[in-house]
Amino acid sequence: MTGELAIDVTGVTKRFGAKTVVNQVDLQVRRGEIYGFLGPNGSGKTTFIRMLCGLLIPDAGRGTCLGFDVLTQQAEIKRQVGYMTQRFSYYEDLSIRENLDFIARIYAVPDRRAAVDRSLEQLGLANRSHQLAGQLSGGWKQRLALAASLIHTPQLLLLDEPTAGVDPKARREFWDEIHRLAATGLTVLITTHYMDEAERCHRLAYLAYGNLLARGTVAEVVASARLTTWIVRGPELAALADSLRGRPGVEQVVAFGNTLHVSGRDAALLAAAVGAVRDSRHTWTLGQAGLEDVFIGLMDAARDNFA
């Protein structure tokens, strides 16, 4: 295994029938990096990840994963990758320990018993290890799946919405754990719909309708969107929002509690639109566009271009 890149693929394409689900995606992920993979539902994130670990064969494209060819060396890739599926896919009729033990045997984990014990300990499930996996709550299932995908100490972790349905405290612990693992050299590719999680990634990629629309650090992504955002405070924001929507230059009007975010890519047009409705009852400040504003802007633009 050589090189700095854990994942290095270009032109990856997947079609289901006539529909192109992943279109010419290039992706480079460095070793030890936590790489966020974002995009609306049905944008092809899961499909892309499945192609990385040999579960689907790409229709076009090439590249390497951990230095192995993604088209021909799937078996080698599988041995070094931990994959946590979006839908819980361990055995519900096996206990927690039995599931971990099964995976550990499949990967021939050295000193298996100790490895399983350690995993149960970290998971905080040591005293419930004989409970059937099917009886766990959704969040606990996610934690079990994470533990199982780590038990063979993979080089690359592919996590497909690992924190869906997990409570905030557990989510924070989960991310602390991910950062701790990344510090030891593990590479993590993680899909999520949460903005706070996106911001904890070293770098991001944004996929919509199969097309990679943006990538880079959070700051780079925000900057590349060239989105201008006005933040408005004051009374009767709902009425103000209605009168702003549809004006030229106004691409998004989003209410955040007591503030309204008004964004657009063309700063001059937006300023004109704002000028038309501006009054003394509201305070208007030119603010920083958030990741969410950027993604929603990208999604709207993508819908116009591809859908």
């Binding site: 499945r50 599926t85 839908r87 819980f88 995976i103």
Partner: peptide, 13 residues
Amino acid sequence: ERGTMENLLATPV
């Protein structure tokens, strides 16, 4: 049908 195949296929088995 139970979805466990995805996991099994992702292992080197």
